[in-house]
Amino acid sequence: MEAAVIDPFVFRLAIFVLAIFVGYYVVWSVTPALHTPLMSVTNAISSVIIVGALIAAGPEEMSIAKIFGFAAIILAAVNIFGGFVVTQRMLQMFRKKK
């Protein structure tokens, strides 16, 4: 029998599980005053799903997948720009006592 090869899926699963734990500890350390910016920024970063849309829209020839990709790019881009800009706007407002 050849040397045991671990399916790359298992590595990705490991990353996923560890990232859940990282998320758990990082989010508990977020100050409650910034929970709204937390939601808007998580919303912006979850739009990194755009990478899937870019690949779908990538081929030169037209296909149904390319149209799905194009639509997903628009949606994700609205979220990315909207999410980061509105987060920045909110964070600018949080000022200390002068």
Partner: peptide, 18 residues
């Protein structure tokens, strides 16, 4: 997982737990 993309897996886990 479908795209085998680490950035997306990490982000999904972060946002999900958040």
């Amino acid at each position: 997982f479908t795209l085998e993309n680490t950035a997306l897996i990490i982000t999904g886990a972060l946002v999900g737990s958040s």
